[in-house]
Design a protein around this nucleic acid. Structure first.
Length: 723
DNA sequence: CCCGGTAAACTTTTT
DNA sequence: GTTTACCGGG
């Protein structure tokens, strides 16, 4: 019998899609059709008569969630809500927040809000003298919560940071409660607490969602796993999908252990392995497998493919970051000339700040691009300010938001005035928002401040009143009442224009939300506070720029992996311990396996890092790729496809050799070099290796100096053996 | 209180 | 190279 849902699937995929009741674990290698299986399984369940509302599907990112929901609809299924763990918990908590002592309209604090609060607490508790940054404390607290730990002495060390964290941990959470706010981690923890403390509630949720599905299971942390167990029974129809080789969120508490535990906690689990790769060329797959095979803490696992060999991977070693980016831009321009769709080209980097150079080069060559992630729209200062105004309307306990904007635009409320108001509020048992609204709390402030606060209170009152008509009405009052646009566009820097545009974009986003969702101001705020990079629509075809983390789950015909240098990728921090390095290698594996047809692997001999020029060696991961799967890129454009002359390798330009595999520099005895301060000279002697390598150089002024190669920044003028 | 200057520190990765 | 911390004059 023909069945369009499974006709074109292989036997393993089919088994996963058609699996009946009971737990199922799909171990899906890269490019093995995981999303396909998940979406078809959902469609299949609905065809069996399962109501869309009884399926709880959770993914890791908003982007993946949206994509999955869309693909189910494309298969002819009804709309199924696919959520991230965080958004699902937020939604559930919104209904039941009162049970755990939070207002229904609780505020969700992002990382920035969290750190502002911690900073204030450090000051209040007199712990700000240690030179410890609030963000470090915040990260540490987050890490503990993700591992489901409490700050007792057994879990922390004796460093200053550990002591401070211990002292701040409880006050931080008490304060959050007082503010009617939760941070990202709390969304999961509070919901988990709710289920645990009231078995009947847990039972309600299990009855409501007999089908639970978790994507990217290898990236779940302990709390998420505990949550999953609360939402299921050992013989539930729970389906988890993941790939241990793609676990890249260890820094966030992800535990591969969850995959092992799953089989024992759900003893009747059916395990399905998807081991055929349909995505990449055989050469790309071979390269990726060779790299990941270097991980020791790993079950040996192979992926098959019937795809053609395809072109070899191209490696390119540039002198500097600008050359690297320029070459990539040139190449992309060439591909564009061959009618390669731009949105099938992606450029990856290890960290956001590395996007700058690439952006610049693409801009110079007029190639459209989109940055995925980075400082997102809703993290921009002007947007956060305006959202803070809206938040205090919905949650009058939210002092963090109130203090954020109490003097923005400047209204004469400096540090001392704010402190006075804070004291008055504390004395009267009021929140800051309430104190702003109450003229009785303004006594003792300057006439100017009192007047400004009165106007602010009036604006907030009016906005609150108008919020009944929707988020847009409230925002309009805020913009008018505070003259915010004027403030944001006259700060005298080049960003003035962009800020105005951003505010306009916020306005239209709000208007759209009002029309489409009709969930009111508080609905808008909830929607927005869990949005990150994801939902920005791509307008027109463009090259996709993103971190490797952001690339997970995506695929492109042509992929550029940049900055393949030791210290960058793998990152300096990750190189310190073995686990870190193995996770970094998985990250490289993820990067490589995103590509369908071609891969371009680049590095630069030197680049600016935090203001200083740094030299580096080629990434160790690149050296793990079999030599016969790669060839060296020559600086002139030729077609990316193998059959169009990709084979020949033009001569490297003289005096400009491309020594990809050579480590740091080609400075030998006899080499003529230039130093920025000392001028030109000849290398007389080399001592030491790696970071310790030193060169004794006899400069033309007749003086011999010993220089550490790593820092000296010597440039080769001509090779010594050329003579 | 505000703004402009200068000094110092720092960059993984995300919900 | 960019963002934050601190200081001194309006």
């Amino acid at each position: 019998m023909a069945d369009s849902l499974v006709d074109d699937l292989n036997p393993e995929q089919r088994a996963a899609v058609l699996h009946g009741n009971g737990p199922l674990m799909v171990l899906a290698g890269a490019g093995s059709g995981k999303t396909r299986v998940v979406t078809r399984r959902i469609a299949h369940l609905m065809r069996r008569g399962v109501a869309p509302g009884s399926i709880l599907a959770m993914t890791f990112t908003n982007k993946a969630a949206g994509e999955m929901a869309r693909r189910v609809v494309d298969l002819g299924g009804a709309y199924v809500r696919v959520a991230t763990f965080h958004s699902a918990c937020a939604r559930f908590l919104r209904q039941d927040a009162r049970r755990i002592g939070f207002p229904q309209d609780f505020t969700i604090y992002d990382t920035y809000d969290r750190d502002s609060l911690i900073k204030q607490l450090l000051e209040e508790l007199g712990l700000d003298g240690y030179g410890i940054k609030a963000s470090v404390v915040g990260q540490q607290i987050s890490r503990m919560k993700n591992a489901a730990l409490k700050p007792d002495t057994s879990t922390s060390g004796f460093s200053d940071v550990a002591r401070v964290v211990r002292q701040v941990f409880d006050p931080y959470h008490e304060r959050l409660r007082k503010l009617g706010a939760m941070d990202f981690d709390d969304l999961l923890l509070h919901f988990l607490d709710m289920l645990r403390s009231d078995p009947q509630v847990a039972e309600e949720y299990r009855a409501r969602f007999p089908f639970v599905l978790v994507d990217e299971f290898q990236d779940t942390n302990r709390v998420q796993y505990d949550l999953l167990r609360q939402l299921t029974t050992p013989d539930s129809s729970v389906c988890v999908v993941g790939d241990p080789d793609q676990s890249i969120y260890g820094f966030r508490g992800a535990e591969i252990r969850n995959i092992l535990d799953f089989e024992s906690d759900f003893p009747t689990t059916t395990v399905v392995r998807l081991e055929t790769n349909y995505r990449s060329t055989a050469t790309i797959l071979r390269a990726a497998e060779a790299v990941i095979a270097n991980n020791k803490l790993r079950k040996d696992k192979r992926l098959r493919t019937e795809n053609p060999e395809g072109a070899k991977l191209l490696k390119f070693r540039a002198d500097g970051a600008a050359e690297e980016a320029g070459e990539i831009a040139d190449r992309i321009r060439g591909m564009r000339g061959e009618d390669v769709p731009l949105d099938q080209i992606a450029v990856f980097y290890r960290a956001h700040w590395l996007s700058r150079g690439i952006e610049q080069a693409l801009k110079d060559k007029a190639i459209p691009y989109t940055i995925v992630g980075g400082v997102t729209f809703f993290e921009r200062r002007e947007i956060k300010d305006l959202l803070a105004y809206l938040r205090v309307l919905v949650n009058p306990l939210d002092d963090v938001s109130m203090e954020r904007v109490i003097n923005v635009p400047p209204r004469g409320m400096g540090k001392t005035s704010v402190q006075k108001l804070r004291d008055a509020a504390n004395g009267a048992g009021l929140s800051m928002v309430e104190a702003v609204m109450d003229p009785a709390m303004h006594v003792g402030l300057s006439a100017k401040s009192r007047k400004a606060l009165g106007a602010l209170a009036e604006t907030l009152r009016e906005a609150k009143h108008m919020s009944a008509a929707g988020a847009h009405a409230a925002l309009k009052v805020v913009l008018q009442g505070t003259d915010y646009i004027n403030h944001a566009t006259t700060m005298g820097d080049p960003e003035d224009v962009a800020r105005e545009e951003n505010i306009q974009e916020l306005v239209s986003d709000v208007v759209q939300f009002d029309e489409k969702m009709g969930e009111g101001l508080s609905g808008y705020l909830q929607h927005v506070s869990l949005l990150t990079s994801a939902d920005k629509e791509v307008e027109g075809p463009s090259v996709q720029l993103m971190t490797v983390h952001a690339a997970k789950g995506l695929e492109f015909d042509h992929v550029y992996i940049t900055g393949l240098e030791d210290g960058l990728f793998p990152s300096m921090r990750a190189m310190e311990d073995k686990d870190g390095l193995e996770e970094e290698r998985r990250l490289m594996y993820v990067a490589l396996t995103r590509a369908r047809q071609s891969l371009f692997l680049s590095s630069a001999r030197e680049r600016m890092v935090a203001g200083a020029m740094e030299r580096s060696t080629v990434s160790r991961f690149l050296k793990e790729i079999p030599a016969d799967a790669m060839e060296t890129h020559s600086a002139t454009w030729h077609s990316w496809s193998a059959d169009e002359g990709g084979g020949q390798e033009p001569e490297a330009a003289a005096g400009h050799e491309i020594d990809f595999d050579q480590t740091p520099q080609v400075i030998d005895v006899g080499t003529r070099v230039r130093h920025e301060m000392f001028g030109e000279g000849r290398v007389a002697h080399i001592a030491g290796r790696g970071q310790m390598a030193r060169a004794r150089v006899r400069f033309d002024d007749g003086i011999e100096r010993t220089l550490i190669l790593e820092y000296a920044g010597l440039r080769v003028v001509s090779e010594g053996n050329a003579w």
